[in-house]
Design a protein around this nucleic acid. Structure first.
Lengths: 152, 152
DNA sequence: GTTAATGCAAACGTTTTGCACGGAA
DNA sequence: TTCCGTGCAAAACGTTTGCATTAAC
């Protein structure tokens, strides 16, 4: 586990304890998998990983823990209407994503100036902007190579 | 119906005819409601409107027509994992949206430079960027006023 | 007359819920 | 000992599908 993952894990554990939520083995496993993943796992992915350590774990438990973290703003939910949602506990605040439509991989690109854009939107529309979401969709280098090789 | 709505309607009708799809009364009604709406209607909203003219219309028919238009790139689908999808047939290409989390209203703000941003993302990540989506979430002026009046 | 669209109901995939049991504090 | 979390199954939700009937062309 890298340094950032450890920090995030501690932050989340402390927040849970402060609010008198219990640290169960299943819950801890979900947290650990979340902070270790830099590929924005889905609930199904988390579920499969947790099952390796605790084979009786149910999907509902994973959903409940992830939902709790979302409520506490300790995880960023990337909702998709046509697929399972994905979660980012390493950077639990709005930031842009690049999504491969072929393999489903999600990356965090470097990009600044979005906050300023949000403020500009607020001025122009009169809305009080609270959050935002920016996703780019395309094909990652790996998938493009495979596609090229097949001659599609 | 404003000029843009009429243009869009004609474009869609011609495209349908060219591909030998049939122009049924229900289908025409869906198209008309889509091009007249600048509030990004949901399927349920379209359905309710179509029902006023053709009371036997089914939800499935609306879904099928909207799906057909989506395939033909004549409508932009804004998918939401926690609510019904919304549709934009007036500007059927990626553009930013401002969404009121209180009343669900969706507006099209002026904003340029996103295409350039997409190209920058492509360069930085190696992805072939095909499309994107940018949503700002906040509270619209009308809802803020109501909230202020109630003292929430 | 052909063939595609409609309308109904059943199926779908993901997420949420209700509830009895088990375990963290 | 308390009562929150778990795990199961059922429900919920928007959406899609299969199929017989209807209607556009």
């Amino acid at each position: 586990m890298d340094r950032h993952a450890q920090e995030r894990l501690q932050q989340m554990l402390e927040k849970l304890k402060r609010r008198r939520f219990r640290i169960t083995p299943q819950r801890l496993a979900v947290l650990e998998i979340l902070v270790e993943s830099d590929f924005h796992p889905s609930v199904e992915t988390i579920f499969a990983q947790v099952r390796k350590r605790f084979p009786t774990t149910s999907l509902a438990t994973v959903y409940k823990t992830v939902g709790l973290l979302k409520e506490m703003h300790e995880v960023l939910e990337l909702g998709f209407h046509d697929a399972g949602n994905r979660y980012d506990a390493r950077k639990p605040f709005p930031h842009p994503h690049v999504i491969c439509t072929s393999c489903g991989r999600i990356r965090d690109p470097e990009l600044s100036g979005l906050q300023e854009l949000a403020e500009e939107m607020g001025r122009k529309t009169g809305f009080t902007i609270v959050t935002h979401r920016l996703d780019f969709y395309g094909v990652c280098p790996e998938c493009r190579e495979k596609t090229d090789a097949r001659g599609d």
